[in-house]
Design a protein around this nucleic acid. Sequence first.
DNA 1: TTCGTAAGCGTACACCTTACGCCTACGAAG
DNA 2: CTTCGTAGGCGTAAGGTGTACGCTTACGAA
Lengths: 202, 202
Amino acid sequence: MPRPRSLTLTQIAAAALAVVDRDGLAAVSMRTVAGELGMGTMSLYRYVSDRSQLEELVVDLVLRAVDLHVPRGGPAKRLGVLADRVRVAVSGHPGVVPLLLTHRHRSPSSRRWGETVLAVLTDAGLTGEQRVIAFRTILGYVFGALQVAHFGPLSGPGTAALAALPPEEFPILAETAADAATIPPEEEFRRGFAIVLRGLGL
Amino acid sequence: MPRPRSLTLTQIAAAALAVVDRDGLAAVSMRTVAGELGMGTMSLYRYVSDRSQLEELVVDLVLRAVDLHVPRGGPAKRLGVLADRVRVAVSGHPGVVPLLLTHRHRSPSSRRWGETVLAVLTDAGLTGEQRVIAFRTILGYVFGALQVAHFGPLSGPGTAALAALPPEEFPILAETAADAATIPPEEEFRRGFAIVLRGLGL
DNA sequence: TTCGTAAGCGTACACCTTACGCCTACGAAG
DNA sequence: CTTCGTAGGCGTAAGGTGTACGCTTACGAA
């Protein structure tokens, strides 16, 4: 009966994500996103109640791109693939990393990914406290690795910045930064996750 | 010759931290922090160039409280203690977690902690790429665990919220949330870190 | 006592989120 | 085909934010 919606929440999220990718996270505001959609600022509030909810939508859109089909193979293989898919999805939108870190917990896609990971863990024979610890360790590593990859002292622009530090105060850090420069990000992520998996006995 | 400074950067950071602890991160602004110090808004800019730099100061203040004396024991014991000290320091100021995640890489205290961890790893016989991966995995876990502990679906308020979810879509997540409720945060952190250490062969 | 330097602050501006109320597009009912 | 109720879209405005600029003033050294 009433007038139908002209936009979906996904379209709104896509517009916000476009602004992030093009002009950076700092450029995101209710005005710029509304402008991206060709509508007035206040019209956005017909769809989202809040700026925070808009950010949530963006996070969910990025995480929705993660394929949740569990590949064939042992638990280690399965978990490795699931984790790496998150890395890939996020690496395509580096600007949203700060948003991911603070809004991930409210994203349905994030929860679905968690459910999938838990299914693999359960399938591998884990239950009770063991499963809780394993799950939280994996979660911690995956999002911690994303944090480190984008804000870390040994990755991306951080590595170069670190090399310029006083080597007398940070001798090993400087040396390690030099070593780190030769390892591509995916390899770092995968080898780090392999360590976690080994610790889990999978 | 000129008029001396009346405040130190540490005092500024402490004032900002006090605002965070009392009124939450959202309450932090140049005005409120200046008010906390009993000075005008613009006076703050004599000390920091930026809001971002103010946040950096807060992060560094929190991390400065981490004791960097390496305890006696094997590498696992040493790293476990160093990691847990970060957890303790941060858990006293939950409001700064989002700041930690985004500004950690510019904090000198954070770098000093990293140098200390690297020294332990070196002492344990790690070098080259192996050391890079080990370091980044530890870094990823520690800050990832902080992220998860404060924004996670299985911790703090998140656990209860999750239990209220549709169990038909997230059956294992709901079950795991119930299991998680009985494990105290320090134990989760320590056992998760133990998994990482085991994976590292330490 | 005088003077130069930098501390501290008042004002102002651009921009942000968002509350409120008007106009209008639309689909269903008559 | 007309009418009407609902909700979509937007203009305006208020309150809060970061910060540029320039004035006043406290202080230490000469």
